[in-house]
Structure formats: structure tokens, C-alpha cells
Write a protein that binds this DNA or RNA. Structure first.
Lengths: 197, 197
DNA sequence: CACTACATGTAACTAGTTACATGATTCG
DNA sequence: CGAATCATGTAACTAGTTACATGTAGTG
């Protein structure tokens, strides 16, 4: 369900083809929401049928066309409605936590290594998110610029700060999880009861 | 795939029936991993077929039987192997972040309310996780007690602390997210560029 | 006898993953 | 002309969700 809202969200900034959207959601740009190409095309067609978006066929060369989708009034209303609806708490399903729950069953060296890799991932994710946050604050990202072009300049800072805050949150969560994993590594190092250092 | 490992993990502490496992994963106890009843029974049968667990039929009254599953050698090996394998980074797909990304499109009062509910959920989740962490540290939870009964007493503290740490992580993440949402509420309150207070 | 807990299932669906398939256009 | 990029699809699968269905056993 949310993929539709994610698509509406970016199309609201700028009409795009399925291919453009694939770059956005499938590639490394897939911050916040990720989706493979095979999911995007059928979803776009379903959304067009539902009247949330409208496709406009453009000629690119003699026999190649691309369909550029834009958000309809109905789509905009649906997006606004969804944005205003508190989401129900989704069930926790985190593989790393599940692994950590049973780290007493394996050698602590192996558990340490699993956490080590996790830490690297989380730190990398945090840095990427912080980079994106900064680019948003400096209003350097193409999509944001396009979005802002249709707003009163006095609103630009507030909009940029709101978007940036989402990436700050992504970064903060990743840092928290990395720190948790490091604490886990320290715990793994303690053996038996007396070695309390 | 991970549901199987979650099931192996609790069955390793104590053999259980499908019904028992449903209480564990479907009810409020479904910390760390949640799964509905309709997913658990078929999964158990597939796992038995795969030789990861073995079912033992017990009579409960004249015409009611229950099947108690226990982890086989093969299941234990599979669990240990999975525990030692670093998991690939899973795509981020967080509805609240997706909503927050477009909070500039709705009234800030409504966005504030969405965050308010999110904060309440996260704080509640944090408190529940912290409660469970403390019960684990005091070695009060039934399953942990059962698990520890098959371990050298000198290991008990370390095992309990490792398990508790997972719930500490759950709590820490929830607190971080709640704090992020509160910061978001503050940002929403700022209007236009000059009102920087 | 009614209610709760025990115990196990199935059907239909949505979302997401992995892999394959095809052709057009542009650029060096 | 070959490679990269543009552009759009399909098939087969796994995981997870929602809802329904059925009967037994214990307790007040």
C-alpha cells in the first residue's frame, strides 16, 4: 500500500516516467522506501486505473515512447489523506535482533563478527543519511529544487528543514543501532560470572 | 525464512506445541518476531518435513491430541549456522518516515497529531521492552529459567545479560525514534523563514 | 450449560523478491 | 559497430495479512 504513497510523493514534485521512478526507488537513491523495478511498473498501471495518476505518452525517437505520469487531483487528495492518518504500529521483525537473542548459542568470536559487519552497515547508512540531510539543508538536491520552485520562497527553508529532519532520523536510528551492537560486542567479551573487570 | 529461525530459537529452550508457539508469536509476547497463527502451523509442518524439528503426538483427553515439536540435531545445526551468518542489509521501508517526508503538504496540526500518536507508541514499546529486559536480568521469565536449567550456573548471568541486551536495544531504538518525532513536532511549529525565535 | 481455553487447520489476498526477456536510442 | 543507457515488461516465488472454520476439554 505504501509504495503507492511513495510514488505519489515523488511524482508530486515532478512528473516522471516509470524508468525515472525505477532509478529513484531501485537504485542507491532508494532511501526511505525501496522497491524493485518489477513492482513499480505494475503498480503504476494499477494507480493509473484507479485514477491516482495520469500517464502522458511522449515520443522519444521514431518507435520508442515513454509514459510520463503525473499526480491527479484524486491522487493528491489520497496522498494528503494518508499523510494525515496515524499508522498502526507495525510488528517488529528484525533479523539482527533475532540473531542477537541467541548469541549465547554460538562462539562469541562469530557473534562478534556478525555485529562487526552490522556496525559497518549502520555507520555507512548513517553517513549516507547525514550527507543527504546536509544536501537537503543546502537545497542542493535536484528534486527538492524542483519542488521548491512551485512554492513561495519564504517557505523554502521550512520545507527543506522538514525533509532534512527525516534523514536526520534515519541517521540517528542507525547510530543508535550501531552503538547497541558495540555494547553487544563488549558483553560478548565477558566470560562467566566473576570476570566483571 | 527468519520465522523458521525464530521458531527454532524458542523450541531450543523448550519443546512446544503449535498452540504454545502461537501464544508466543501472535500475542503480545511477540517481541522481536511476530507471526500470525495462520503462518505458524504450515511453517511447522514444512520444518518437520525438512527435518529441522520433530513432532511428538501427545494425548490430551480421549479424542484431542497435540503435537509437541522439538529441535533436531539438523535444526540445531541450521540455527547455529544462521546465527553465525551476517545478514545482508535489508531495504528501509518505514511508513512513518515516508509520511514525515511529505509533512509540508498537510496542515502542521495534523502532522503534529500523527507524530503524537507515534511518540506514544514508541514510548509504550520502550517501556515494555525495558520491563522485559529487567525481568530477564532478574531471571524471572519462564522460558529463560527453562533455558538456564540446561546450562552451567556460572553461565547464567552472561546468558541473561546477552538476552536482556536485545531488549535494551529495542528500547533504545524506540526512544531514539520518539525523540526524533518530538524534534519533528518542534520543527513543524516554526512557520516561514523569519520566525526563528 | 455456557464460557473460556486448548488445538489445528484453510482460503484468498497483498506485498515484495529474484530472475528473465525484449527492444530502442545514443555516444564514442 | 559495440556498449551503455533508455524503456517496459512478465513469471515464478516467498512472506505476511485477514478472515473464516472446526471441534475438544475444563471450569463455574
Amino acid at each position: 500500500m505504501s509504495l503507492q504513497h511513495a510514488l505519489l510523493g515523488v511524482l508530486e514534485a515532478r512528473p516522471m516516467s516509470g524508468y525515472d521512478l525505477v532509478q529513484f526507488f531501485d537504485g542507491s537513491s532508494g532511501y526511505i522506501w525501496a522497491a524493485p523495478q518489477s513492482q513499480i511498473y505494475p503498480t503504476l498501471r494499477r494507480m493509473e486505473q484507479a485514477g491516482l495518476i495520469a500517464g502522458d505518452d511522449e515520443q522519444r525517437g521514431p518507435r520508442l515512447t515513454r509514459t510520463v505520469y503525473s499526480v491527479t487531483e484524486k491522487g493528491l487528495a489520497e496522498l494528503r489523506k494518508w499523510l494525515s492518518t496515524p499508522g498502526k504500529p507495525q510488528p517488529v521483525r528484525d533479523p539482527v535482533l533475532l540473531q542477537a537473542l541467541h548469541f549465547d548459542m554460538i562462539e562469541s568470536e562469530q557473534a562478534h563478527e556478525v555485529l562487526e559487519q552490522f556496525i559497518r552497515e549502520q555507520e555507512a547508512a548513517a553517513e549516507e543519511a547525514e550527507g543527504h540531510r546536509d544536501r537537503l539543508l543546502r537545497q542542493e538536491t535536484p528534486l527538492l529544487v524542483e519542488r521548491l520552485s512551485r512554492h513561495d520562497p519564504t517557505d523554502h527553508d521550512r520545507i527543506a528543514r522538514l525533509k532534512a529532519h527525516v534523514f536526520a532520523g534515519l541517521a540517528a536510528t542507525a547510530r543508535t543501532r550501531a552503538e547497541w551492537a558495540r555494547e553487544g560486542q563488549r558483553l560478548l567479551a565477558t566470560r562467566k560470572t566473576p570476570g566483571e573487570d
